[in-house]
Amino acid sequence: MTTPPSIPQLSQALTSLGLPPPHPSFLVPILTPGPSQRLPPLPALTATAKLRLLNADFTSALTLDPSRTPSLPTHISDPSIASRVLDADVPVQVIGIEDLSRSKWEQVEALEMERKGELTKGREVIRVVPDSEDGASAAAMGGSVSTQHTQAMGRSNGPFKLLMEDVKGQRVYGFELKKVEKVGYPPVMSIGCKVILKNGGKVARGMVLLEPATVVVLGGKIEALDKSWREGREKALRDAVGDRRSGDNGSNNGGGTNATINID
């Protein structure tokens, strides 16, 4: 009989997959077999740990190992710094996504049609019929919100702007300087998706420039955040355009660009 893997072994297995180092106590439950259960082999444990890690909240105290996890430089969002470069691989999680190529109102209209159960294909209005009565109520409960977003948001090439936060909860915006795979609206990229901003990644005027060479999208999500983001999406967009209409242009556009707006 083999000895069960140790915490460092499992931790090592995870980091070798490019994941950030987990907090030891994060791994304890995984390495603790239930009563009358035998611990699976290391590859299975690694897979379980990876899945849990990607769906965990990086900012909660016992998820990542704070002593070994790099964080963003302080003042990263300082717009007065024209250009700088990250000097470590920083794990972050995505907490906001914005398609910069489409107006908010256009997105509101698309979501509204979806809500009414309609979809346009060219000029044709198509009714999206739920499979059954249950299907309809599932949609009302938010069960099929993700499909809703896929259809309403279509396949956009972006660029997308992301709001991200590191292990310490420090936030920074970034946008796609070049197209990065798996960046998009949920479900392409969910809220809480884990991303590594790699050593050498560029930062300009407080915004991270996302490009394939310096960004690794690990995937995953934070269920609660993702759900509330999707459900509150239409309202958030409406509020954002409403704000802009009532206030002056320079003001905070819906919690969007306050970090960088005063650079000019």
Binding site: L100, S101, R102, R205, T257, T260, I261
Partner: peptide
């Protein structure tokens, strides 16, 4: 990119 709906991004 034609046009973007974010001023800061365009300025950068």
């Amino acid at each position: 990119r034609n046009r973007l709906f974010d001023r800061a991004t365009v300025i950068i």
